[in-house]
Design a protein around this nucleic acid. Structure first.
Lengths: 338, 338
DNA sequence: GGAATTTTGGTAACCGGTGTCAGTATTGCC
DNA sequence: GGCAATACTGACACCGGTTACCAAAATTCC
């Protein structure tokens, strides 16, 4: 071997062996346009022979940014967070990028300072923000100021394709509720998500629109608020079931709350779906782990996360890519005709 | 402000203002022993005043390692992975460390090369390996070779406190099965975990030992193998229930499979716990999201992950720390006396 | 009191890349 | 053939820290 020492090859080794300057090697690595084809091939051959890999720390120092993506979230649902992670990891596999995760507490007074420190310290290449954090427009300004590219995951059809990847939850819920109407249900309850969540507002709006379209009542006694947790779903479900004219079907704004509603029904001796039909949202693992298997709406989280990561890594290539993803309605056994 | 330019303060700014050399500032940052107390205080005052934070990329380059921990896993259970992540993040919050996640496919032929590349490229400070990957002793050699400190999470009481954080699953299962015996059960089935998992082997062994101690049969027709997924639990549960002398209680090696067993019981019209008692393992979210709520064993995953991270960050301080964690038996409604 | 020893601080080199800018081939054009 | 324009390439400083080495000062020892 033409190198002294036993360490890994550096750019100097490549330059020396290829008989060029290290700057030229750097040009090859960074795909500079101004480069003679013959030189490029010669250098690439040496790189391949030596198995040279540029040192990411040195590049980070010189370029002032790391080849690392950050995932920022404050999410009550483990399965969803993990799906997002998997999607991002799908996209960066086979690239030089890595993924740093950074859960935060969205109620913390130091939230902004915390996120700012995270991005500054790590010199992130880009960040992805998950809902409900992503709904806060103030973050956009922060990221712009820090010169850090970003993508916000959302659940409404807004207009900023460069920085948003979203699904159309409202329409998805309209279709789910229309399905209940088709099955003969007239009293259809809603378990809302927490206030301040756009996804919750969109799903609620979908329910209102579907009920309105079917000429059915959609007043306050058919609604109960939860906060996307199992326990809150159980309480909201109990409130709806115990009302003086209880619904024959309930749409819960996520699967975990739907499981809570199921729980509440069981505690009252109701059979699902005979006495009460239930539809959830998300199609997380719990949907098929409960009995009966839950009719729900699948959100292509993993594909959305992949798309978000690609937008960050190579904005030009991903420019044309869709940024509005469609949901699938998944009919299982938790709904019966009435 | 006493600095030129609008960027962040560098070590040179601190040195100039404090009237010392950057070498001295570096000594302060790295807590060198050989340092005059007055000098240290003066420098620390300037650091505080300027809000100086050392540039991690520059340090990484010079020190040849990043202040970053890696989490390597190939785990079927989302909730558990997220718990591990949370635990590690608990430990690094308020420190300069960050967490890089790196899921792998343990059946991939390039597994070792992949992990090696990950550690070399990122110059990790240390890595934490989750089961079942952590059960492969070959990794220890790899990490030693790379000079990367590591901690393996495990589920058996082995002897290597510096590199292991573990729980005593066998004893936990003994106690869980003894509880079933106390409740009058004599035919107690086992849904095993997948082959090649130490956690599965330990839990199975615990079942054998408890049955043996109670003088009960623990032969092959009381055992069915699953692979830690819901569907496999359902199939294993079906096999046990359909046997010619079915068990009155089943211990499943994790919660997800226990949910599968519950599913199988429902499909056959059995009432849980009246006709069949079920115990799971892990106490993940699903345990309380199904009906009836699952009696299970809680594994202090988050605390274990915290401990693992602390062992990496500050081995001396964490040296004395416990590395064997105890489980809690959680009695809920899925077991009835017989 | 002077030499030996221990602290402490400064200088320069280095970690492994990238940016600037000047210098050298090559090409185009008259 | 001469000159300018253009295409490549390389020397050198720099990113922001750390370490090696050395000199100066303070302390201890005989």
């Amino acid at each position: 071997m033409a190198r002294k020492g036993g360490g890994k090859p550096t750019i100097n080794d490549v330059a020396r062996i290829a008989g060029v300057s290290k700057k030229t090697v750097s040009r090859v690595i960074n795909r500079s346009e101004l480069l003679n084809e013959a030189t490029r091939e010669k250098v690439e051959a040496v790189i391949a022979e030596l198995g040279y890999v540029p040192n990411p720390q040195a590049r980070a120092l010189a370029l002032r940014h790391n080849f690392v993506l950050g995932l920022i979230y404050d999410n009550p649902n483990a399965q969803m967070v993990l799906n997002f992670q998997e999607g991002v990891l799908d996209a960066i596999r086979e690239t030089e990028f890595a993924l740093l995760i950074h859960p935060v507490d969205r109620h913390s007074p130091s939230l902004f300072a915390d996120i700012r420190r995270f991005i500054e310290r790590q010199r992130l290449y880009g960040v992805i923000i998950l809902p409900p954090l992503s709904e806060n427009d103030a973050f956009a300004a922060l990221f712009d100021e820090l010169g850090c590219s970003y993508v916000r995951m959302g659940s409404a059809a807004l207009d900023d394709p460069a920085h948003l990847v979203q699904s159309n939850d409202r329409q998805a819920v309209r279709e789910a509720v229309a399905y209940l109407v088709e099955q003969g249900h007239r009293q259809i309850g809603l378990v809302q998500g927490p206030e301040g969540f756009r996804s919750a507002a969109e799903r609620e709006q979908g329910w209102h629109e579907a009920m309105e379209a079917a000429g059915l009542p959609h007043g306050g006694d058919l609604m109960a608020r939860g906060n996307y947790t199992f326990e809150s779903g159980r309480e909201a479900g109990a409130a709806l079931i115990d009302a003086k004219s209880p619904p024959s079907a309930i749409f819960a704004s996520n699967d975990v709350m739907a499981a809570g509603v199921l729980h509440a029904a069981r505690e009252r001796g109701l059979d699902v779906p005979r006495d009460l039909s239930i539809i959830g949202f998300d199609d997380t693992a719990i949907a098929t782990a409960i009995w009966p298997p839950l009719t729900t709406v699948r959100w292509p989280i993993r594909a959305m996360a992949r798309s978000a990561a690609r937008k960050l890594i190579d904005p030009k290539a991903a420019g044309e890519e869709q940024s509005l993803f469609l949901t699938d309605f998944i009919a299982r056994a938790s709904v019966a005709p009435r």
